[in-house]
Every structure is written in structure tokens, then in C-alpha cells.
Design a protein around this nucleic acid. Structure first.
Length: 565
DNA sequence: GTTAGGG
DNA sequence: CCCTAAC
């Protein structure tokens, strides 16, 4: 594939943004400032080397420039997109001439600040070149990011373009523009005089004394800034990274889009796909594409992520000593940190014998390790909680912890041993077991601690007092004695309560009637209260939420004492 | 370090 | 309950 690209350079060979002048035949002779810049047309071969453009090519471009001024106007708009995206390198491997910052900062071009007013007018001699140049500029940068402009570039500035193609192209361009980067004329900074002033002021602010030298192209870029949402949204479809960059850069000094953005975010906290999600996705993808070459240029970015994260788990055996005896413990090392227990346990399942031994031995070890277990210190609890994560860390994991953990896992998995004394956080008033072997071999989580009614009560009360969302507050004040409940736990529990309360109300209380012997039936009164609170909090603005415990708390209390077993 | 949300 | 992203 070969592409014809315009490359501008001054005498030193340094890339500059500038006027337009072709080396061999001058298409137009912009009377720019004192700094003469040569604009060269070159073709870039597949291997990335420059080849001087033939006269034909040059003529081609020239015709285009001459014929389609209006098109060029539009093209300039596309150019903004290019400017906005501005990747570091062109798709063909040449270093990008300028990125948007470069453009805005380049002070080599003498452009009268006032000129920017007329910059976009069709007949302005200086406008055409600079716009064209911005287009060309874009030809590199956009290549990676969005497809339609890419087509445009290849067709238009490739040398094998038929007239017919061009016409089609025009339509494409126009349509693409209206769709992709909606720069409505009304919001055109340039044409509207007031806005122009504003714009100029902005330039001045941003560039300081350099404002007078602000290159014309910057004006073009500013257009994009005025509708960054449209731009960025479009772009994000193609490449998130670029979109992000654009968004960041354009938000900074943008005035119009501020509220739009906040509005957009106010709705809900936006989360980008989690690593797990990506990984899982990549797993699937990699299965599908296992044989194919990975390096197809499109989607290269995404694909790369896939590749990186697509690290296969591998097993290895490790000699570990539990309570003095050496036991070979299968070990899973995944780069990705995620629920390890399942993996480990699954593996364990394949080595029942070894596991058995390990389990028993480990049991000992654990007992030893937990000689001082009965303190309620939150630290202990937290340590115990977070400990399992270490098991998946490669060999570097601290052996002690590791031991302990694998041990716990084995026990869990194993023969229903129920070492209550393992309970890391000691026990509070009414205690339940750490591992609850549910009838058919299912195992409750190690750290699982069923919510007692009293806890639920406290939670509800806390929420009513401090408001949902102030989890740390609630934890600190209402759950001071329950060290094993983290604020996250509170939050989760509240979420569940909410769900329960909402699910329950429509169909009266089947919950109570049903025999949930194991699961603590939450008294309807509490659920009711939960719903009440939820409603309140959703309606009342958060600043009022710090209000009163409300009388119903008392009712709740009585309800609780009654329903207590 | 906290909070929100998905798993 | 865990994990992770957003704040």
C-alpha cells in the first residue's frame, strides 16, 4: 500500500506547520510571513520510505485543491478530527508531523491573529493551503483512529483516483462530517463575530504572548473544541484511548462542553470495563482467532490488550512444608489476580490424596497459627480477609501466609472439617461458623459471616441516621463493635436489604412463610423500614439526609425484639 | 482510603 | 464476599 502524503518542511528539514508551497510546481502561493516554508509532496511506500511524488500526483492534488474549495472547507473540518486525535505516529510509520499541541504552539508561522477571522472563508488565499495542510496532517493521524477519513485520505491523495470516485468521495466526506464531527455553523467560532472574539481571547490566554502568532490551524482545532462531545463520542467508538485523550485535552480549556460532560457523568458513575471483563473477552476472542495472525492493523490497539492479558494459567508443583513434613502442593500461578480459591480447590480436587494429607497437616499448622486468635482486632480480621489473595501470587508469596492459606482452602474443600477455632476474628455475641458446608458439598465462603438480625438492625438504623452511602461513618459509629464488618460489607448488605425489601413488598411476605431455615428471614418490619429509608434517601437531597433517626426506629426495635428467636 | 457497582 | 474502578 502506498500513500501520498504531503510533508512540509522548512529548510532545516524540521517539520513545521506552515503555509503551502510545493517544491516543483506551486499550487498556490500564500503570502505568509517571512518564514518561507517548503511544502513537499511525497509518497510513502509500504516500507515507510519517502518517494518524491510524481508530477501526476502533484497535479492530482492540485486539481483537487483548485476545484473543490468548498470541499476543502469541509476537509478542514475533518482535519480537526485529525488534530484532535493526533496520534504519535502515522499509520505508515512516519513520525507525526504535529499533534494538536504542536499546532497550537508552533510559533514558526507568522499568521496575523486577525487573519483567523477570515481563515475559513473560501476564497481566502491563505485559508486553502492551511486547511489543506491540516487535512494532510490528519491523513496520518486519523489513519489509526477512524475509518471514513482514512478512506478519504487514500482516495483523494492516492494517485489512482478517478473523477467518479471523487464525487462519491465528496458525498462521503460531507456525510461523514455531519455525522462524525458535527460542527454546526451556528456554533462556528469563526463565523460568528462574538465567538471569534471569545476565541481569540482564549488563544491569548492559552498562548500568552504567542497568541499573535497562533497558526491558523489552531482556529480550526478550536472548532472541534466547541463540539467536543460529538467529536469525542464518535472517536471513542473507534478507539477509546484516543477519545479519552481528546476528551481530556479538550475539556481543559473548553467552556461550552462543561455542563454537557458533567451532565453525562452525573447520571451514573461510569465504569470502564473491568480487567476481568477484558480478559474474559480476550479469552473468547483468542479462542476464535487462535490461528489467525494477530497483527492486522485495524483493531491493533484492542487486539494488543487482548494479547497482553491473555496469559494462560500454568501449573507448577511446589514443595511446601506443613507442620514440618514436606508436601507437594499443586500451585496455580496466574498473572491475573482473581478468585484463586476456586482454581486452587479445583486443582486440589485432582489430587485427592495429596490434598488429604495436606489438609490434615495443615490443620495442625493452622491451629498453631491461630493460637492468639480470639482478639477482635479489626486488623487481624482484615489480614485474614485479604490473605487469600497472596496465594495466587507467584513464588514470591510469603511462605507463612501461603501455608496458612492453602491450608484453609484445603480444609474447606476437604472433609468438612469445621475448625471453629479458626475463625480469624474471634467471635462476637451470636456466632456462626466460618465454613458452612451447605448440604450438598457446597461450601460457604471462608470469611462468610451471616448477618445477624441485630447487625441488620444496626445497619438500618445507621443508614437512617447518617444516610445511605456514608458507610464508613456508619461503620465507625454504629458498627464499632463489629470489627469484621467493613464499610463495604455494610454497603453490600444494604444493597441486599434494598433488593429484598423491594422484592418482597409486591407479593406480601412470602419470605416469612417460606422455610428459610438457614437464611435468616428478615422481618418484614425491617424490610419495610428499609424501603422507607430508601425512598426517603432517594428523594431527599443528601444534605438533608443527615437528619433525625426518625420515630420509626423505635418501632423497628420493638419489631425486632418480637421477631427474635 | 472510600464509595459504587458488577460478579 | 470479592474485585475493581471512580472519587
Amino acid at each position: 500500500m502506498e500513500t501520498v502524503v504531503g510533508v512540509e518542511r522548512n529548510d532545516e528539514g524540521k517539520f513545521e506547520e506552515s503555509g503551502f508551497e510545493k517544491s516543483s510546481s506551486s499550487l498556490s502561493s500564500p503570502k505568509l510571513g517571512a518564514d518561507p516554508v517548503v511544502y513537499k509532496l511525497v509518497r510513502i511506500e509500504g516500507d515507510g520510505r519517502f518517494v518524491p511524488a510524481t508530477d501526476d500526483e502533484i497535479m492530482e492534488v492540485g486539481n483537487l485543491l483548485a476545484d473543490d474549495k468548498i470541499e476543502m472547507h469541509l476537509v478542514a473540518d475533518t482535519g480537526q478530527t485529525g488534530g484532535c486525535i493526533s496520534s504519535e505516529r502515522t499509520s505508515s510509520g512516519i513520525p507525526q508531523l504535529e499533534n494538536s499541541e504542536g499546532l497550537s504552539q508552533s510559533d514558526n508561522t507568522e499568521v496575523d491573529a486577525g487573519k483567523s477571522n477570515v481563515h475559513l472563508e473560501e476564497n481566502d488565499p491563505s485559508s486553502a493551503p492551511s486547511m489543506n495542510e491540516s487535512h494532510i496532517n490528519q491523513s496520518g493521524s486519523v489513519g489509526e483512529c477512524s475509518n471514513p477519513p482514512n478512506e478519504l485520505v487514500e482516495a483523494t491523495f492516492g494517485r489512482e483516483t478517478t473523477v467518479k470516485d471523487k464525487q462519491w468521495l465528496k458525498r462521503r466526506i460531507t456525510m461523514g462530517l455531519t455525522n462524525s464531527c458535527d460542527v454546526s455553523t451556528s456554533s462556528f467560532v469563526i463565523k460568528d463575530n462574538k465567538l471569534v472574539n471569545k476565541d481569540k481571547e482564549e488563544n491569548r490566554n492559552n498562548l500568552g504572548s504567542d497568541s499573535a502568532k497562533a497558526p491558523a490551524v489552531r482556529t480550526v482545532n478550536d472548532n472541534c473544541k466547541d463540539s467536543p462531545i460529538n467529536c469525542s463520542d464518535q472517536i471513542e467508538n473507534h478507539q477509546i484511548a484516543s477519545g479519552e485523550r481528546l476528551r481530556n485535552s479538550s475539556i481543559d480549556d473548553d467552556f461550552g462542553a462543561e455542563d454537557l460532560n458533567t451532565e453525562e457523568r452525573a447520571a451514573k458513575r461510569v465504569r470502564k470495563p473491568t480487567r476481568r471483563y477484558i480478559e474474559e473477552l480476550s479469552e473468547v476472542e483468542s479462542k476464535e482467532h487462535s490461528g489467525k495472525s494477530i497483527a492486522s492493523t485495524k483493531n491493533a490497539g484492542l487486539r494488543q490488550i487482548s494479547i497482553k492479558s491473555n496469559v494462560r494459567p500454568f501449573k507448577m508443583a511446589r514443595m511446601d512444608s506443613f507442620g514440618g513434613s514436606g508436601v507437594e502442593v499443586p500451585y496455580v500461578c496466574r498473572v491475573r489476580r482473581s478468585r484463586p480459591r476456586k482454581n486452587v480447590m479445583a486443582l486440589m480436587g485432582f489430587h485427592p490424596i495429596g490434598m488429604g494429607v495436606a489438609a490434615t497437616l495443615v490443620k495442625k499448622a493452622i491451629v498453631v497459627h491461630n493460637t492468639q486468635p480470639n482478639n477482635e482486632s479489626g486488623d487481624e480480621a482484615l489480614k485474614a480477609r485479604s490473605a487469600p489473595e497472596q496465594i495466587q501470587q507467584p513464588v514470591t508469596a510469603e511462605p507463612e501466609k501461603d501455608k496458612q492459606l492453602s491450608a484453609v482452602d484445603s480444609i474447606e474443600q476437604g472433609q468438612n472439617v469445621e475448625p471453629k477455632h479458626i475463625d480469624p476474628s474471634g467471635d462476637t455475641s451470636d456466632e456462626n461458623v466460618v465454613t458452612v458446608p451447605t448440604g450438598k458439598g457446597g461450601i460457604r465462603r471462608k470469611h462468610h459471616r451471616a448477618w445477624t438480625l441485630s447487625e441488620v438492625m444496626k445497619l438500618v438504623e445507621g443508614v437512617s441516621r447518617y444516610g445511605a452511602g456514608r458507610w464508613s461513618e456508619i461503620k465507625r459509629l454504629a458498627f464499632a463493635s463489629y470489627s469484621y464488618r467493613t464499610s463495604v460489607d455494610l454497603k453490600d448488605k444494604w444493597r441486599n436489604l434494598l433488593k429484598a425489601s423491594l422484592a418482597q413488598t409486591p407479593q406480601d411476605k412470602k419470605i416469612n412463610s417460606r422455610k428459610h431455615a438457614s437464611a435468616m428471614p428478615i422481618p418484614a418490619a425491617i424490610l419495610l423500614r428499609v424501603r422507607e429509608l430508601a425512598e426517603m434517601q432517594s428523594q431527599v437531597s443528601p444534605n438533608l439526609s443527615s437528619g433525625k433517626p426518625v420515630a420509626s426506629t423505635l418501632l423497628l426495635r420493638s419489631a425486632f425484639t418480637q421477631s427474635r428467636l
